[in-house]
Design a protein around this nucleic acid. Structure first.
Lengths: 114, 114
DNA sequence: TCTTTATATAATTAATTGCTTATATAATAA
DNA sequence: TTATTATATAAGCAATTAATTATATAAAGA
């Protein structure tokens, strides 16, 4: 396994970004599936603007990509980011969030737009 | 390699703690050598109370240990912490801080108290 | 003893953060 | 067209953060 080096200042910026449980959970969730804004709103007890603002921060760091699908905005993890290996090594220690997405699907709150 | 799991809330707290370049640098530095407070004061352009406060936060999380040696307080990384594997996987991506310690030694600013 | 050195703690403050509400835009549905 | 749904942005605010200065304590040295 090749370990890419990230300078301290940039690394601490990324850790600060991920040092918020909502954003960290978002990134871990995106590690298994693409998710749209309204699904995140259903997933967290938080207003839609709050969710949008968290996602914007993740995007500003280039950690996630977004694409428009009809009225929905779908977010995905940017595996091309130079910081992806760094982030990935963190995510490996976190519990999978797939059950939370499954729960959402069971409530009929997942969108389908492919 | 066994990967230990850390829950999202605790992980985000640790990432927030390390999401400060001074504290992140301290932890990376301690990954190679034990360091006392006055050495950190020499290492960072920051007052002694600021350094003490950062070290206290690291200690409150159990990430570092301290021991008294005469008038000095020596800090070390707590490799017994349940979060050490998580932290270690981050540190692996950061550049070594050993040259900064060497520079300090060259200026005669390293203490010797063993 | 008195002074110096190393450290910790408390009070203060400026900057940052993460939410809220209000509002605007764009796409879809009726 | 009008209403609804999904999203983004702006303004405001309370809480948190990271530094500072001032001060206290303890150990070492003269």
């Amino acid at each position: 396994m090749v370990i890419t080096s990230v300078d301290i200042a940039k690394a601490s910026d990324i850790l600060k970004l991920l040092g918020d449980k909502t954003r960290l959970s978002m990134v871990k969730t995106l590690d298994s599936e693409d998710v749209c804004v309204c699904e995140f709103v259903a997933l967290y007890e938080m207003s839609q603007p709050a969710v949008s603002q968290h996602l914007r921060k993740l995007k500003d760091f280039g950690l996630v990509n977004e694409k428009k699908r009809g009225q929905w905005k779908i977010f995905s993890l940017n595996k091309e980011s130079e910081y992806y290996p760094f982030v990935q090594s963190l995510l490996a220690h976190l519990p999978s969030q797939e059950d939370r997405l499954a729960e959402l699907a069971q409530k009929g709150l997942r969108i389908s737009c492919e």
